[in-house]
Design a protein around this nucleic acid. Structure first.
Lengths: 210, 210
DNA sequence: GTCTATATCCCGATAGAC
DNA sequence: GTCTATCGGGATATAGAC
């Protein structure tokens, strides 16, 4: 809750940080498309022009939220993966964390995939995502002999983890702890299955038995 | 191109169908969030109130687009899968078709996953999707001994195919035929890998070697 | 079924005062 | 850094005429 003065107006707080916080709140209620600078201003009790002292436009605020999302995810991911030994188990844990993170912080996940941010105009987003990519790459490389196989495996794992999140949100009936755990477990199992049969990702087409 | 009279106004056409067509066009240019009833009216040269004679509101028009999407996908999918023998090959073909469809009809795919339609309020969408689900279920059942395994495999395949589409759109650099074929092939390979190691999707956790 | 006209609301962004 | 005030634009949806 941001600090307010007796007159109800915003005071001596960090408006920039408060805007990010409020944006996440609004997105949680109305989705990314339902977020507006005006709404954030209203909730914080500041003038509609105040946010523009901190963000050039709406997209820059959303980009800041995206950066926050990647930083938070890495902060959760890093210790969890560190407790596992072996690249396969680490990749499974990565998938589990990915689903758990998306479920626990849906607004942040939404910003990453539905805000329609132009990454070329907001390079800070990819900078924030880099440590996560590095972690994935390191695990995959530890499993693959050739470079081409590493690329194929990495994209397959990325697609699968993301797909499980989308599937989870689609069946949004119950989002209790049990449902989340089930979705996370499925993502982890799929990860292990892809790793075990990773040779199928690169073998020439005519050697595939169908 | 919808029929128009000499005065430039819309005539004797099927405005309902024209609205769906125009919606797809607009979504292709501006995304789902950029679509509005007013914009569609403008492009068709009709009054902004005209669409409301055919659709109660914006969401109902988008729901009609979603129904069209599922019908078209099934029409493409059915013959392609029919040319393949064996459930594993059919599931791989399904994944390939899924990616190809999304790439060829991005606006339709967007409506399905980004329009934020309340499926409870638009049951016709799930009705249109049913034949596709049935096809997937039939193939999966032909591969699985137990019912639980079938469910796990089905959701893993669904997640993976969808994830490959999202990944493809994310790296939207080139959407030429070659890039599409590569993404479709990756989805098919991942499908075969998951099928081959499907035992990992159900085995109890303590029997997993990490 | 389509039109004209309108009510109502919301948004992004800026200028200039304090 | 925040405020007041405002410009210019766009959206949904309805009422009543034809």
């Amino acid at each position: 809750m941001p600090a307010r003065g007796k007159d109800g107006r915003y005071h001596h707080g960090d408006l920039r940080a408060a805007l990010i916080e409020t944006a996440i709140e609004v997105i949680g209620e109305r989705g990314v498309r339902g977020f507006s600078m005006a709404e954030a201003s209203r909730r914080l009790g500041v003038a509609v022009s105040a946010p523009y002292a901190h963000f050039a436009d709406r997209d820059e605020l959303l980009a800041a939220v995206a950066v926050h999302a990647y930083q938070l995810f890495y902060a959760e991911l890093s210790p969890a993966v560190g407790q596992v030994t072996g690249p396969a188990g680490q990749l499974a844990e990565l998938a589990r964390c990915y689903v758990r993170f998306a479920a626990a912080h849906r607004p942040l996940f939404e910003v990453l995939y539905e805000a329609g941010l132009d990454k070329a105009r907001h390079p800070e987003i990819e900078t924030a995502a880099a440590p996560i990519d590095d972690l994935l790459s390191a695990c995959v490389r530890a499993l693959s002999d050739d470079q081409a196989g590493a690329g194929e495996l990495a994209s397959a794992l990325e697609a699968t983890a993301n797909g499980h999140v989308v599937l989870f949100f689609d069946n949004c009936a119950g989002q209790d702890e049990q449902t989340v755990a089930q979705a996370a477990e499925r993502a982890a199992r799929s990860t292990l299955a892809l790793i075990e049969s990773r040779h199928l990702l690169t073998r020439p087409h005519d050697q595939l038995r169908l």
